[in-house]
Design a binder for these strands. Structure first.
Lengths: 259, 259
DNA sequence: CGTGAACTTGACAGAATTCAAAGTCTGTGG
DNA sequence: CCACAGACTTTGAATTCTGTCAAGTTCACG
């Protein structure tokens, strides 16, 4: 472990998390969201199995045959893919309650690697069982369609943003996004530990490690945040949001001072 | 009409296209793919309705409440969204057989505008009817999940490519991709009419109009293609593919001569 | 305490945008 | 049928941003 004790359970397995879908604190985000008591039991018995995952292990491997979906119970993952030129491209980071493998249903093969960034616990959901269940539980099928469509919409947003935003915008947005997701999960939106390397950040933002490092330093010098190794404290979220928003008018654009 | 007569039916409504799902030449790409005779009839009666769409009309409006999916029978659409800074971002181009509105199922609102780039014919598919049908036709539900997941995977690919590729790679890839899609639909992979403006191309590629224009000129000077207004002829697809591929090694990289 | 990986910082070069202007096409109205 | 106005497209020069290359520093771990 290279992390200070996390202030909340997002990065740690806890017995309360693992008991059952009925008790799971992430149920509202997950597949069985909205399922009634009987249907929920059926779902859990037929479908969900829990297991721990060690740091650096991969739960899915890009190109491997698709068999099951994975729900993150605790810890964080990065979704990555080998670029044609040898580098690694990172598509995103998965946090507790997120579902992995949705992009494999259509093609029958996992699209990316899912690599654990910390000690994790996941639920594995065999897709064949899920399909059987959905055949006589239309509500479950609707839920899957919802999740798939929402993921699609989210990827589209991400694509547009990464395609059009400049480097400072991208990093500011990522930091605010991470904070927001921690906050949604009971943590602090402004004070958290990154569990990914600068290289991972760069690969996600389509920048170089150097650019990420420079930008973090610049944000720090401008009083927007405090950063020490992988510990981040967002000091001026309003300022960060102003940077994250694309340059709208010539109005009060926050200027970053390099020196 | 601003186009020369199209050499094939992709851009024109034809009676054969519009007769029914059973006779539709795009059925394999569409929702009822794989449906048997009886189920297919049921699908068609309950779900699909055809209508023409005039150039510049929008079939879907970003932010509007979701009610129905749309299948492109003939013509082409662009999917766009107003950027926060006032510009327009283009997410993609839809051709016959493509489905519109998949990103709205999860949120209940259309994510983007779908604007007709030519005279079009579409099928409208009320989603409420589709859900009823899927409740007792698990095969149809599976098909929708497949399409959703495949769209997700495709957007991911697109995101990674646009995020990491340089301008010439992006344009070369788009041209090859368009050619490939025309080819799949019975047209020429190397000889076609663009039905979108340079501005649309630029908005899709996350470049400026000037860059697109410059790149087209450069490709032309290097003998890779011929371009006259919106008529494109790909002369050296191997060369274009070499450019579209990210710079792998210091090997035989095609060098573009500016003068 | 030393070693290697991760991270930071600086100087420079290349790529793409921005700004500016000229040229071309399209569709409308006379 | 032709002329005109506006949108679309092309081209050029200067600027800005980000990547590349090269050190140097800090941190994690043995």
């Amino acid at each position: 472990m290279n992390q200070s004790p996390a202030p909340f359970s997002v990065n740690r397995a806890s017995a309360a998390n693992c008991a059952s879908c009925a008790n799971c604190r992430w149920r509202a985000l997950c597949l069985p969201s909205g399922l009634a008591g009987g249907a929920l039991d059926e779902f859990e018995r037929a479908v969900a199995q829990r297991r721990p995952v060690a740091r650096h292990d991969r739960v899915e491997i890009g190109g491997a045959p698709f068999g099951q979906l994975h729900a993150v119970l605790s810890g964080q993952f990065k979704l990555q893919r080998a670029a044609p030129d040898g580098g690694m491209q990172v598509l995103g980071f998965a946090m507790p309650g997120d579902l992995l493998g949705l992009d494999a249903i259509g093609t029958g093969r996992y699209a990316n690697d899912a690599v654990a960034l910390s000690e994790c616990v996941i639920c594995t959901i065999p897709y064949a069982s899920l399909e059987q269940l959905m055949a006589h539980q239309p509500a479950l099928a609707r839920r899957l369609s919802q999740l798939l469509s929402a993921s699609l919409a989210q990827r589209q947003d991400q694509m547009l943003f990464l395609g059009n935003a400049r480097a400072p915008q991208r990093l500011a947005r990522l930091l605010l996004d991470l904070g927001g997701r921690y906050s949604e999960r009971g943590g602090s939106a402004t004070d958290f530990q990154l569990c990914m390397s600068r290289e991972d950040l760069a690969a996600y933002l389509a920048l170089t490690v150097e650019s990420v490092s420079r930008l973090l330093s610049m944000f720090k010098q401008n009083g927007l945040l405090a950063v020490s190794n992988r510990a981040i404290t967002l000091l001026d979220t309003a300022g960060l949001r102003a940077i994250a928003a694309p340059p709208a008018a010539t109005s009060s654009l926050p200027v970053l001072h390099s020196a």
